[in-house]
Simulated scan of single mutants.
Amino acid sequence: MHELLATLETRRQFGWMVLRFALAGLIAAHGWTRLLIGGVVPFGDWLTEQGFPLGFAIAAGITFVEIVGTVLLAARRFVVPLTLVFSCIYAMGILLVHMQAGWFVVGHGRNGMEYSVLLIVCLLCVGFQELKPRSERLSARNGS
Rank of each mutant, 00 (worst) to 15 (best):
M1R: 09
E3L: 12
L5W: 00
A6K: 09
A6C: 01
L8G: 00
T10L: 10
T10R: 12
W16G: 07
M17A: 09
V18P: 02
V18I: 14
L19R: 06
R20E: 12
I27L: 08
I27R: 03
H30Y: 06
G31T: 04
I37A: 04
I37F: 07
G44I: 11
E49V: 01
Q50H: 07
G55C: 10
A60N: 02
F64T: 11
E66Q: 10
I67F: 12
T70F: 00
L73D: 05
A74G: 05
R76A: 11
F78I: 03
V79M: 00
V80W: 01
L82W: 10
T83D: 08
S87H: 05
Y90F: 15
A91P: 04
A91Y: 14
M92C: 14
M92E: 14
L95S: 11
V97Q: 12
Q100G: 09
Q100V: 13
G107M: 06
H108C: 04
R110S: 13
M113L: 15
E114P: 03
S116A: 15
V117Y: 03
V117A: 15
L119E: 09
I120E: 09
C125P: 02
V126I: 06
V126M: 02
V126D: 07
V126G: 04
E130R: 07
E130D: 05
K132V: 01
P133G: 00
R134N: 08
R134G: 03
S135K: 12
E136I: 09
L138Y: 05
A140E: 12
R141Q: 13
G143K: 12
